[in-house]
Amino acid sequence: MELDQLKTLWKRADEKLPTLSDSHIEGILRHRSQRPIARMKRNLKLEIVFLTLLYAPLIWYFSISFEKIYIYYDIILIVSAITFLIYARYKYKLLYKMECASCEVKSNLSVRVNMLEKLVKLYFYWGNISAVLGYLISVVISYIGLFTEQGKEIRVPSMLEITILVSIGAVFILLAYFVNRWYIFKLYGQHIQNLKTLLLEMDKKTDQK
């Protein structure tokens, strides 16, 4: 079969295309996009709403509380909320820049790879920072809580206590580091590699055999 014949065959396929009515198109447009970026944007918005609903009442409750100690909880919550908002803003900016559906395919792929790599770095740093912050916050809250419950004055922890807490923290953070790295690679590693392969193929004039 010659290539001109292929062209004829290809064009003949147009005659047999399924019918597509306006109501079909309207039906499709009623659905939300399921592309990864669209889903990530929606998830980010949900995370912000969820954290606002969780943090706002807690911050309000601790701020009106007569117990002086609760002011520390408030500070911890406010610091972590601000950190999350910085992370969310940066992530949203990356997701926004990642979409250029009407750009040339090559430049879109290149932007996508670039932004995905930045996003992966962001996830990686955020994951590690969250692990450290999470551990510190839980240690501080448990430590303060322990003394408050027993009605004792809070004292500076002993050297032994500090050593134990630091050792547990080091193991936890190290574990979180490796789990984080493995999970991010599992989510994005292969996809980024595939996009890079496409990009490389676009530049190559010859086949790789």
Binding site: R35, P36, C100, A101, S102, C103, E104, V105, N108, L109, R112, Q190, H191, N194, L195, L198
Partner: peptide
Amino acid sequence: SFRGEAKISTWMYRIALNTALTDLRR
């Protein structure tokens, strides 16, 4: 965002191929 700088078919090809290629995941 289509401003008519390119043919409509060119613009549609870009969108269709970008959608197909960049979101190709198993």
